[in-house]
Amino acid sequence: MSNAFIKKLSPPWVPARYGNAPYFWLLSFAMFAWKYLYMPLTGSEILLLAVSFLFFLPIYFYSFWISGWRIYLCILINCALGIAWARYNFGSSVFCIFAATMCSRIHNSRKAYEGLAAVALIVAAASFLMRLETYFWIPALIFSIPSGLGAIIGERLASSNASLLKKQEEVEYLAALAERERIARDLHDLLGHTLSVITLKAELAGKLMDRNPVACKKEIYDIEHTARQALAEVRAAVVGYRATGLAHELQSAKSVLDAAQVELRTEIDQLTLPPAVENVMALAVREAITNIIRHAKASQCEIKLSQGNGLARLEISDNGNTSHIDKLSKGNGLNGMTERVQALGGKLDLFVTQGLRIELSLPMKELI
Rank of each mutant, 00 (worst) to 15 (best):
K8C: 10
L9P: 04
S10G: 02
P11Y: 00
P12N: 00
W13S: 05
R17G: 03
N20L: 12
L27A: 11
M31D: 05
K35A: 09
P40D: 10
P40E: 11
T42S: 13
S44I: 13
I46P: 00
L48M: 10
F53A: 08
L54Q: 02
F55C: 12
F55N: 10
Y62T: 05
F64S: 11
L81N: 04
G82A: 01
I83Y: 00
G91M: 08
C96G: 06
S104Y: 03
S109H: 04
R110W: 08
A112Y: 00
A117C: 04
A117K: 02
L121E: 04
A126C: 06
A126K: 00
F128C: 08
R131M: 12
E133N: 14
E133K: 00
E133D: 15
T134K: 15
I145D: 10
G148K: 02
G148V: 03
A151S: 07
E155R: 07
L157I: 15
A158F: 05
A162F: 15
S163V: 14
L164D: 07
L165C: 13
E169A: 14
E170V: 10
A176P: 06
R182Y: 05
R182D: 14
R182S: 08
R182G: 05
A184I: 14
L190A: 07
T194F: 07
V197K: 04
L200V: 06
L200P: 08
L200K: 01
K201L: 12
K201C: 08
L208G: 06
L208M: 06
D210P: 00
D210R: 06
P213D: 10
C216K: 05
C216D: 11
I220R: 05
T226E: 15
R228A: 13
R228K: 11
Q229W: 09
A230S: 11
A230N: 02
A237K: 14
V238L: 12
V238G: 06
Y241F: 13
R242P: 08
R242H: 13
G245P: 13
G245A: 13
L246A: 08
L246I: 12
L250D: 05
V256P: 08
A259H: 06
Q261V: 13
E267D: 12
T272A: 14
P275Q: 03
P275M: 07
P275L: 05
P275V: 10
E278I: 09
N279A: 15
V280M: 05
A282S: 15
L283N: 08
L283E: 07
V285G: 05
V285D: 02
E287V: 03
T290P: 00
N291I: 01
I293C: 12
A296Q: 02
A296Y: 01
A298W: 02
S299F: 03
Q300W: 03
E302H: 11
L305E: 00
L305W: 01
S306M: 05
N309V: 06
A312P: 03
R313L: 12
L314E: 04
S317Y: 00
N321M: 03
N332R: 09
N335L: 11
E339M: 11
R340Y: 04
V341F: 04
V341K: 03
A343C: 07
L344A: 07
G346I: 08
G346A: 04
L348E: 04
L348G: 11
L348Q: 14
F351R: 10
F351N: 15
F351V: 13
V352N: 09
T353A: 14
L356T: 14
L356E: 10
I358R: 03
E359V: 14
E359F: 04
P363M: 09
M364R: 03
E366I: 00
I368E: 12
